[in-house]
Structure formats: structure tokens, C-alpha cells
Design a protein around this nucleic acid. Sequence first.
DNA 1: CGTGTCATTGACATTCCTCAAGGTCGGTGG
DNA 2: CCACCGACCTTGAGGAATGTCAATGACACG
Lengths: 260, 260
Amino acid sequence: MSPVRLFPEAGQLARHSCSNCGLGEGCIPRRLEPEEADLLDAIRVERRPIERGATLFHAGSPCRSVYVVRSGCVMCVLPLAEGDSQVLAFRFPGDILGLSGVGGAKHGCTAVALERSRICEVPIAALHELAANAPSVRNLLERLFSNSLQSGHQHVALMGKRLARERLATFLLMLSDNARRLQQDPERLRLSMSRSDIASYLGLALETVSRLLTRMQDQGLIEVDRRSLRLLDLAGLRALAEGEPGQGADEQRRHGPAFS
Amino acid sequence: MSPVRLFPEAGQLARHSCSNCGLGEGCIPRRLEPEEADLLDAIRVERRPIERGATLFHAGSPCRSVYVVRSGCVMCVLPLAEGDSQVLAFRFPGDILGLSGVGGAKHGCTAVALERSRICEVPIAALHELAANAPSVRNLLERLFSNSLQSGHQHVALMGKRLARERLATFLLMLSDNARRLQQDPERLRLSMSRSDIASYLGLALETVSRLLTRMQDQGLIEVDRRSLRLLDLAGLRALAEGEPGQGADEQRRHGPAFS
DNA sequence: CGTGTCATTGACATTCCTCAAGGTCGGTGG
DNA sequence: CCACCGACCTTGAGGAATGTCAATGACACG
């Protein structure tokens, strides 16, 4: 399952070079000039895998590195008053973590692994040295930042005044696109997050998410069993996401308006 | 009202140097080393004021500059399908605009002036040259990016599963804090945005915003007349924002539980 | 085989949206 | 000066969508 040749060091697993990581174009160094990718590779630290439920960093703690998800899934949450929290994002292999802390001295959110995950750590100090001399590293950083800003925009748009079923359908389609990007089956999803995580991400109650999933199943759009999902009707899901009413389980409208 | 000594050039108003801009510490060059601030000042262009309703840049259009609000108020919106749009942010003097487009080649949102506004334009190409040699410019950029990311987080948290009255109270307090930062009276606000803009920003219907404003007025928390606001009870607003139920207009609980 | 976590489902209450009808203000032109 | 218009705001009525509370179920783990 996992690579065989390990050279365990204190607190780290063996180094794999970025060039044989397997993440392909999804990951960050691939978007740099080869020499610069090697530099980034050199400052990169591969950490021991973190377990499901473990925290990679806490909001407010000193921010000395950014991270790239190599395998698994990590979510970013913003702690709120009274043990409450808001899920900000789910990060998959190739995604970057911790950008919101780079400019200030502190992390802007908390990163929690949703399953056993491997993570590459990039110390910011070293990254700054790199950026001092390599224009394309600066350029990369900019792109990462603005991508991050734009996905924030999408998240806001998702939460802003849309029906629960539209949000959930959009969310499932996002997961599907993501699976495609990772060269997995875009119609078979294995959710790494709980209903409650999804609900928080979408600004809904977890019961609403649960109910909608079973309703979508009744409508033949998906098949759901615990955390395994099959998307049976991508077009139907897209229609739902766009705000199409979504026919009732009784299917009155199957063949156009019925005679009264 | 406005400065007297103007040196109109083609398409531009007179240049004021950053050092006598009047924005004080709120603005960006103030956070740089003096020499670097001068450099930034040199590449900065002050544009002719844009009128209420005018668009500074469009989502999807080529992104060649970032902007700083010098006076007035500008909102960032994300255009959605069918003429719909999501308000992402309101930007006030000292705030930066257009960061989400810097990494990619295109603007990530549309910027619309809510009132006659003066804007400083910073061409990105020149900014890149500056960043190549000045570490503190790179540092500044990072801080701007991560601030922007973190305010995005706050926006998501605001929209995520909170009651309408909590959102609106939080919003008013944000405006108040902002007024304080701009050395204006934090208890007297002049809204530059419409009810519908506020509603979009908060993920509500405009009628809900309107109703809540009058309800808050009935409860003695604020005084509202069209777009002029007085915050009469900041503590009460904070309580509302934190989720305190907020007593009914009939004020049953004014002196503790009544006798039954 | 208990125990805890997570998910489902139902009943009910509430919030908030939609639709619709004025109302106010500022500007424009007769 | 007044009438009219358009943009924006307020208010009401009614209902749909969603949250809350509570009970139950399924599975994983020890």
C-alpha cells in the first residue's frame, strides 16, 4: 500500500522528491521552472502522516510553514465562540494549507485531518529566501493567494441566499470535479467529512443535509450509504444546483404537465 | 471641500504624494520603509474620481493594477448567472481592491463605486519590479493577501448559520469599527450601500434587512432614517450579534421577570 | 456486548422569503 | 411650482424552507 523504502528520521518520514510524488500536475512544484522546483523540493519537509482527527495547526498559533496535502483530506475551520466553529474549506491532495497565516505571524484557521493524511511542510522562512531570488516563486505565491481568494468568493456565493438543495448539489458536484482532478471515479465518492462538517461548510443544519441526501436518493439522483456516494445523474444534479425546482418524489411532472 | 491645487493631466487628477494624503496609518505605504514607500508612491497613479454607480473593473477582465480606495466607498461583487450577483465586500478608504486578480491574469470580482470615490491605482507590473528588490514590499503583499483571506473567513462565518438579526447587528458593528478607524464618529453612520447590497452581503432578502432595521429601532438599539444611522446602544448590538435573543418590542423583560 | 459516535427520521416551531401594495425622496420637465 | 417618474424603502400577509428537539438506528471499537 504505502512505499516500502522508508528512511525514518526524527519526526519525519522518508523524503520523496517532488518529481516522483505521483500527484502529477495537481501539485505545486509542477508549476515552477525545474530548477526552482528543485529548490522548493529541497526546503520541503515531509512529515509523519497525521491521523484522522489530529490537528495540523491551530488558529492563532505561530505560522512558520505552509503545507501541501499529499494524500488524505484536511479541513480548515474557523473557531468561533463557545466551541462552535465554521468549516471554511476541505483540502485534497495537491491543495495548499495555511496561506491565510503567511502574512501575519499567526495562523488564520485550524487545520484538522479528516482521515490519515500525508502532508508536505514548506517552512516560510526558506520560502522567503527562495522568493527573494526566483521570480517564478513569487509568481507562484501570488497565484496561490489569488486562487485561495477566489475559492473563498465561491464559498460565499454558495452560502449566499441559495436553497439548501442547491447548495448541497453544488457541493457534491465540487467533490465530483475534485475526484476527476485526482483521477478517481467522479461518480463514486467516499466522503471523508461528516454530515455535520458538510452542514457547517454549507451553512445548514446537519439534519437538513441528511434529509436532503435521502431525498436526492429517492429522486434517483444519488445513491448514498453512510459515507459512500454514487452520483447517478450528474445532469440532474447540475440542474438542481442551478436552481431547477427538482421534481417531487411522486414524479408528477415526469412527462410534462398532467391533465387536470 | 476638495484640495485646491490641482494639476490636471490627461486622465488623471493631480498627484498627491502618499506622505500628505491624509489617510494616515490606515493606508498601505505607511506600512513600508520610507524609501520603499517613496518607490510605491512613484509608481502609483491617482485616477480621476469615479462616480457613484461606475465600475472600476469587471470580473474576468484583464488585471493589470490593484487599487486603493482614497475616499468614498467601493463594493466588490461576484456576478452570478442571470444578472444575479453576490456582494463580497465593501471597501473603505485605505482598503485595497483587486487582489484576487493579481495571481491570475483576470479580475476575480467586479468593483462598483457606491459613491463618488477617489482611487489610487498601482500597476502590477511596476509592483512586481518593486517586489523583486524590496523585501518589505513582498512582505507587505503577503500581509495584504492574508488579511484579505482572513476577512473572507469572517464573511463566511457571518453568513454561516446565524440568525438574520445576528448578521445585521454584526454588520453594523463592523461599519462602526470601520468609522472609528477612519476617525469618524462610530455611532453615526452614513450608509453608502443600499438595503439590497447589505442583504446580498449578508445572504438575506432585502425586506428582511429593512424589517430588522425598523425592529432594532423599535427596540431602541438604533435610529434609522433612510441611509443615516445612529447606533444608540452598542452594548445591546454586541449582545444581539453574539446571539442574545434580543427582547421583543413590548419589552416584557425590562425589569426582570414580571409577576404572572 | 456494551459504549460512543454518527446518521436518520419525525413532529413541530420559527425564521425568513416571496409576493404585493404603498410610501418617500429627489430629480426632471412642463 | 407642480406633476410625474424612477429608485429605493417600508410594511403586510401568507407560506415555504429550514432549524430545533427528541427518539431511534447503525456501525465501529474496544
